[in-house]
């Protein structure tokens, strides 16, 4: 601890600060949010867990399916094996929900939001800087998961005589789409987190919307399912990491319109979150 002397010249030994230039703005907010993300171990562990779970489940699933299938290469070629290689996204998305929610709720649960907002009281800067950083980080992690899953899965299917490469019909778009889908999961949770300001609540609602709701609709009458199913976030969003769409039957969206619907949910959550973030007492 510091030594106590009588009359302390407070800033003795401290270099004077350069003159303030410009106002605390968006650039500073971006640098600040990047530091926040990278300087907490729990965030880094969450991202590592997303990769391990996403890629790991994909690998296990494709290893299992490829070694037990009785179908011939010709039959398999009619299946959407590209999407199947990224099977782990179904669980990986849940970890991305945790990442997206924590990026904002951790500030409230620790009380540091008040420190953050007294340094940068223009809240839109803080919100959008955080949003940009979360999006970029989720994109990188999401693409790692989808590309790694694809290449590992392709390796297993090659043993069955099916060749999957990025130039396979629709594959490149689907694999990029897998990463984008994970970005959407993080953003949905980010918006919910900003609106609820509560970690457990935000994660629960995020997981419910992306996962549990699909299980519940299975118990509904078939006629309802036909109307509702394609609008569910997971069903709509997963079209972007598929190479086969049943749009002609009228039950499914195309890749990008499905992704649009899916991102629509995220945007609604983000608008709600932004409104609460900007308006409510911190």
């Amino acid at each position: 601890m510091s030594t106590v002397t009588d009359k302390v010249p407070v800033f003795a030994g401290l270099a004077p600060l350069p003159e303030a230039k410009g106002r605390a703005g968006f650039g500073g907010a971006l640098r600040s949010e990047w530091t926040k993300i990278r300087s907490v171990k729990s965030t880094l562990w969450t991202l590592a867990a997303a990769i391990v779970i996403g890629v790991g489940i994909s690998a296990l699933g494709n290893w299992g399916q490829s070694s037990h299938t009785t179908e011939t290469a010709v039959e398999l070629a009619h299946k959407d094996l590209v999407q199947r290689t990224m099977f782990g996204i179904i669980l990986g998305q849940l970890v991305m929900v945790v990442f997206g929610a924590l990026a904002v709720t951790a500030e409230y649960s620790t009380g540091m939001i008040r420190t953050s907002l007294s340094a940068q009281p223009r809240r839109l800067n803080v919100f959008f800087a955080k949003l940009v950083i979360v999006t970029l980080v989720a994109f990188v992690v999401g693409e790692i998961i989808s590309f790694a899953s694809f290449f590992i899965g392709a390796h297993f299917w090659a043993t069955k005589g099916v060749t999957l490469t990025l130039s396979t019909h629709g594959a490149l778009q689907a694999v990029i789409g897998g990463g984008l889908y994970l970005v959407g999961a993080a953003l949905l949770a980010f918006g919910i987190g900003a609106a609820l300001r509560h970690t457990a609540g935000a994660i629960t609602l995020g997981v419910a919307l992306l996962f549990v709701i699909n299980i519940i609709t299975n118990f509904m009458p078939t006629s309802w399912q036909n109307d509702i199913d394609k609008w569910l976030p997971y069903n709509a969003g997963s079209q972007v990491w598929a190479t086969q769409h049943v749009a002609d039957v009228g039950t499914s969206f195309s890749a990008w319109s499905g992704f649009g619907v899916y991102m629509g949910y995220a945007v609604i959550a983000l608008i709600l979150g932004l409104w609460v973030f900007e308006r409510r007492d911190a």
């Binding site: 303030a20 230039k21 410009g22 106002r23 605390a24 500073g28 907010a29 640098r31 600040s32 949010e33 530091t35 926040k36 300087s39 907490v40 171990k41 729990s42 951790a106 500030e107 620790t110 009380g111 540091m112 939001i113 008040r114 420190t115 953050s116 340094a119 940068q120």
Partner: peptide
């Protein structure tokens, strides 16, 4: 009003970065 998982240095760093 700090995140317990962040170091003292990084806590001050993200504040400092907001305004150069």
């Amino acid at each position: 009003a700090v995140h317990g998982g962040r170091s003292a240095f990084n806590h001050l760093l993200y504040l400092a970065q907001t305004q150069g």
